[in-house]
Design a protein around this nucleic acid. Structure first.
Lengths: 225, 225
DNA sequence: GCCACACTGTGACCTGAACCACGGCTGGAC
DNA sequence: GTCCAGCCGTGGTTCAGGTCACAGTGTGGC
């Protein structure tokens, strides 16, 4: 059994074999195809998920139907923890961006398993604290940066997490449409498209469908701040 | 000794006398006058603080010197937890908005005290989860709402936490200048002023220096969403 | 009282980004 | 092949809200 997948999750990276197996035993697997929804904002549910393979988007919808993406998550990343510790309806909709596989774990099982493993509890705390820090950064960006700046930042973040460096640049298969990228940075599709076109015309990157090749990380980073 | 102050903090509300005293014993008191800074963004430090009396603002400064407020906190509220669980420099500057008193607690003392009190650890988790949820709401507001909407929302939030209901409306002594209010909602002072003036002209509220009286909560709430 | 300074109120202007409209490209269904 | 549906690229128009420039109003110090 592949405890390795669990080890990818930063939270569980330090587990010994026994602990990993015990945890793994109480988890089950879910699979989704691109576009399918795991759960909706407002649903009830207390399961925690870990993405094993593929990518998902966490999004919220405004009353008038517009959409905003909070995050794109890939292998090893965890979500749904909010409903674990702060009971209440799910605060975001989770949709598969590519075909995706997850492990799921229920509230009760996690808490039971957590008993007597205070180190993991501390790990969870620092995980949440890190998220919170990141959320605050997003707020700051929305207040301080213009749309091209936010696009640059988002691309760099995606590159860090999903990029593969080759000799012609960093290949980032983000699997997002420009529409989704726009929702991620809180801007319109058109504006994002123009920002991308501008970056490309300066030779900082090359556009490919649902993917970019970043050729000048340095310049792009400078534009991001 | 006033363990009652601790009890105000949602996190510690369920403590028995012994536990509260033990905790209280390892905390020390700090006082600041309006405008004084407790710590700066980027400082190192691993203390957790609980506001006992008064109000503080948590803010960040952009590279070009503009300022954004993440939150206004009052009695019973906790801050500085990020540096506790996610070691690293402080992510925000904390400044007293009124004369203020805090209790402080060091990382080590908290962790030591936490040993063998898993319920409190769970409390911390749900506290952080709640914060995260709130941060996500702020992001959504920045993306979806216009400035007057965000101002309305901020006023209602302040009213919930600091308001006193009287027969002419809800008196909210927020102690913030319009400049600070603007930084809190991520807008310019002038735009916020115009939004407030507009609300006042509609009879929804009355403006007073560093304070408002909300006369029509219903309408204001509707404007906020 | 008078001054200084910090805060508030309001208009004029400018600009970034949303919105609208379209046309072109690509990849799957048949 | 043809059609269709999703994406992507790009211009034109509009408007919220930022910036600038002042004028009015408190209020604490002396």
């Amino acid at each position: 059994m592949d405890n390795d997948v669990l080890r990818q999750a930063p939270l569980f990276s330090a587990l010994d074999d026994e602990a990993a197996s015990a945890l793994r035993a109480s988890m089950s697997t879910v699979k989704l195809r691109r576009g399918e929804v795991l759960f909706h904002e407002g649903d009830s549910g207390d399961k925690l998920y870990i993405c094993v393979d593929g990518k998902v988007k966490l999004g919220r919808t405004s009353s008038d139907g517009r959409e905003n993406l909070l995050a794109i998550l890939g292998p090893g990343q965890m979500f749904g923890e909010l409903s674990l510790f702060d009971p209440g309806p799910r605060s975001a909709t989770v949709t598969a961006v590519t075909d995706t596989a997850f492990l799921s774990l229920s509230h009760d099982d996690l808490l039971r398993w957590l008993e007597g493993r205070p180190a993991v509890a501390r790990g969870l705390l620092s995980q949440l604290a890190g998220r919170l820090r990141k959320a605050n950064d997003v707020v700051a960006d929305l207040v301080f940066s213009d749309v091209p700046g936010r696009v640059a930042k988002a691309l760099l973040d995606l590159a860090n997490r999903f990029g593969r460096t080759a000799d012609d640049g960093v290949h980032v298969h983000h699997d997002l449409t420009q529409e989704e990228l726009a929702q991620l940075v809180g801007a319109s599709r058109e504006t994002v498209n123009k920002a991308l076109a501008d970056f490309a015309s300066r030779g900082w990157l090359r556009l490919e469908p649902r993917s970019v090749v970043i050729m000048d990380v340095e310049r792009l980073s400078r534009r991001a701040r």
